[in-house]
Design a protein around this nucleic acid. Sequence first.
DNA 1: TATATTTGTGTAAACGATAACATAACAGAG
DNA 2: CTCTGTTATGTTATCGTTTACACAAATATA
Lengths: 330, 330
Amino acid sequence: MATIKDVSKLAGVSVATVSRYLNKNGYVSKEAGETIAEVIEKLNYRPNNIARSLAGMKTATIGLMVPDILNPFFPELARAIEDAANDYGYTVMLCNTDNDSAKEQKYIDTLLHKQVDGIIISSYGIKPEHLSSLQKQSIPVILIDNVFSSDSVVSLTVENERGGELAVEHLLERGCSKIAHICGPLSITSSRERTAGFENASRGTDWFTPSLIGYSDFTVHGGYTAMLELLSIHPDLDGIFASNDLMAAGALKALQESGKNVPRDVKVIGFDGIGLEMMTPELSTIAQPISELGKTAMDSLMGLIRKESDILTDQVFPVTLIAKQSTMTN
Amino acid sequence: MATIKDVSKLAGVSVATVSRYLNKNGYVSKEAGETIAEVIEKLNYRPNNIARSLAGMKTATIGLMVPDILNPFFPELARAIEDAANDYGYTVMLCNTDNDSAKEQKYIDTLLHKQVDGIIISSYGIKPEHLSSLQKQSIPVILIDNVFSSDSVVSLTVENERGGELAVEHLLERGCSKIAHICGPLSITSSRERTAGFENASRGTDWFTPSLIGYSDFTVHGGYTAMLELLSIHPDLDGIFASNDLMAAGALKALQESGKNVPRDVKVIGFDGIGLEMMTPELSTIAQPISELGKTAMDSLMGLIRKESDILTDQVFPVTLIAKQSTMTN
DNA sequence: TATATTTGTGTAAACGATAACATAACAGAG
DNA sequence: CTCTGTTATGTTATCGTTTACACAAATATA
């Protein structure tokens, strides 16, 4: 592989001039620039990123931490981030934390020593302590769906609470008169907010009672068992709002196996907006703007990396109702 | 951050001794080793990977190219690879190619210039030309589900053809008497093999006719439309083998919407073994050993990177039938 | 005309490691 | 007692960039 030295020699200039040409900083005469360009072309020269990183302390790499790559939400997010990263000439290092605090800590450590330029964290279990080592090295961090008030950390969230309300309003509109809720892990902020939305919209109605809330874990299986339990307590429920789509899918399965017809007997709505198009009936959902979240995450991260000053430290994205077959009337 | 120089100074030895200690090559006295260990502990020193890479030409990073991270098969594979990579102290760079040849080429270029130590390619559309630039730089490559005879390239595949046969045999065993097939893209080797398996097992039976094969594209929607088409030609079919699970899920959806009961009227089996547990009924499938594939891919890649000589250049993994509700009798 | 300022270029010191090479002490073999 | 091999350590070039600094020519300013 050709090096900058080869280029400089062949172009009859010093390496500094070539470097200045490459980085478009400092002065380079038009003439010199042209010869350099030609030589680069001829030698098919491409700067060595490693050397660049060592000299310049920039790696053009970011870390992405997700809790569970098997939940379709995260591949979708990862994809959006990856695409945006690519546009910036950045590559993404994927870290699957399994919601394991130890793994999280280890990955942060690894990313730190790989000298990534920034980190996007979409992992539920992250705690302020974990971030402190990042803060110390002043590595830019974007948190998705998780808030810590702190500078040099940007938080992106969605209107979780409003989404919960929307879901209930939609079910009511479609004629439901006894709506149950399957909530996610209480340790997760966004999960709690969705449940708060459910409570806002249903407390005060004549049918509401706390036992209409089932506690689960964001998995299909968890949604399935929670649904069975809810059914045994409230055989007459006719609407279900699950805090994510996977649990909604599990609930749907439980309902179908229990002989309930969805949407005729019971209507179901989820949250997230992952396209589980294989379901019959297809699931209504409160959709997050996943691609936009990913793109904004990357954009903001680049802002932090480049130390731009006009970065919004907290952004809240709207959610949208997507009505499908699972909440159809008649 | 502490550097090797800081350590050497504080330990009263030269950087070379510290380096030898770190890499466990060359001689280091017990005494010196202990002081160095202490100093490292005290300074919380960790070697700088970038500098290491520049000096030693190893980046401890591999690239992973997948065609479509939204197909659950690939997150599962990615996860297995990532776990194995971690055990080796390696990190994974994720590249989503979207089955786009141009993107593929660009990613290979990027990975090359990021100087990854090796690449695992699970992308369908890869062509020998693409690999040539890798060969030139003699970068180790592992191909999953794709074969190119060539040294320095290891191919991992599964018994696709046998799997196709297994699927048909299973359906026959469960009483099917007219089995249709939804095949995947003909451009994909493994897809063709699965279809060959179907043909092996069904040609010669009294019910077989070419129009029982529908052509599709490995997506849910593709499976759905292919199924509808097959149903219109053969309303009396009672078994379906789809070349992957996503198409099987789409087929299931189409069958249900057409008023067919699965498994009573029609039995369905897919291929891959991704756990689509949210389906009702759950899908039978010919499962690939995904985790094992991922782990072996990483192990073999490390073998190539370390220039070990005993690496199997082609490995074929067995598939296993997983019978679920969608092929139940009665 | 004298003096800044802008433009263009080169030299050489980082960046933080690895490893080739040199050196020396000490053991056992002859 | 010399020779050779093993153990242990240090010096320094190297990897391929970036960039601070020095310098000179050209241009603008006073």
